[in-house]
């Protein structure tokens, strides 16, 4: 238990170790982690959402969109990162690239499924009332697909935070993972302190995105959300029943 007490002390000292020369602060690492997460997510959403939503709207490319998600799940993120860095180097840009590669698939898959599975009768009715394809997508399909679409974004965000910290093992030092991977300097309590910070950061991001999702979800659909943080429920076999 005393390890955890020391870990809290370590956090309260902002990552400084008594009797040591000044280390980089926890705040700095946390901000670094946050920064790369936000950057990677911004790029991934910018790429993944339009692709997934549009494919879903056209009900095309289900094979690619869904299997992308399946393959993605099988990728050990650390390996992707390490192989990427082995050939590209390990700067911010290279890590970002690897993170985007890892974050785009769940975003595409969920956006695709979310829109694709909106009741056809609804989109047909909307079209029948004279809406254009774009209007059908933005006014009917998208609002109904918010929970699934956002679940994809949330899953991707968790994945990015997790991978960013792992990147320390591949040599990327600007994240909280740097402390975790460096027991020699920080001792076990330092590692624990950093791990707690990583967990808190992930929760904060998760809660933030959950609030965004709530704000985006049309009011009447909000309560139906219980079992549905449905990110993983979308393996197509589920339809088989």
């Amino acid at each position: 238990m005393h390890n955890f007490v020391d870990a809290i002390r370590f956090i309260l000292r902002n990552g400084q170790i008594p009797g040591q020369p000044h280390f980089t602060t926890l705040t700095y690492y946390a901000l670094g982690t946050l920064k790369i997460t936000v950057l990677a997510m911004a790029i991934s959403v910018a790429i993944g959402l339009p692709v997934g939503l549009w494919l879903g709207h056209l009900h095309r490319g289900s094979f690619v969109a869904i299997n992308l998600g399946n393959v993605w799940r099988a990728l050990p993120s650390l390996v992707v990162l390490a192989i990427g860095s082995a050939f590209l180097g390990i700067g911010l840009r290279e890590v970002l690239l690897a993170l985007v590669v890892l974050a785009v698939p769940p975003i595409i898959t969920n956006a695709y499924v979310g829109v694709d599975e909106v009741d056809r009768d609804l989109s047909d009715a909307a079209r029948g009332m004279g809406m254009t394809g774009w209007q059908v997508l933005t006014r009917v399909e998208l609002p109904l697909a918010v929970p699934l679409v956002m679940a994809g974004v949330r899953t991707a965000a968790l994945f990015v935070v997790s991978t960013t910290t792992l990147a320390a093992y591949a040599g990327f030092g600007d994240s909280l993972g740097e402390i975790v991977s460096n027991e020699a300097s920080y001792h076990l309590y330092g590692i624990l302190g950093a791990a707690i910070c990583i967990a808190l950061l992930a929760m904060a991001i998760e809660v933030g995105l959950a609030l965004v999702q709530r704000a985006l979800t049309p009011r009447p659909l909000r309560r139906a959300e219980r079992l549905a943080r449905p990110d993983e429920l979308l393996v197509p076999q589920l339809e088989g029943v």
Partner: peptide, 14 residues
């Protein structure tokens, strides 16, 4: 599920 893997593994050690 939300706890990043690196953190969870490390937190279990002690």
């Amino acid at each position: 599920y939300t706890i990043p893997s690196l953190a969870l593994f490390e937190l279990l050690i002690p």
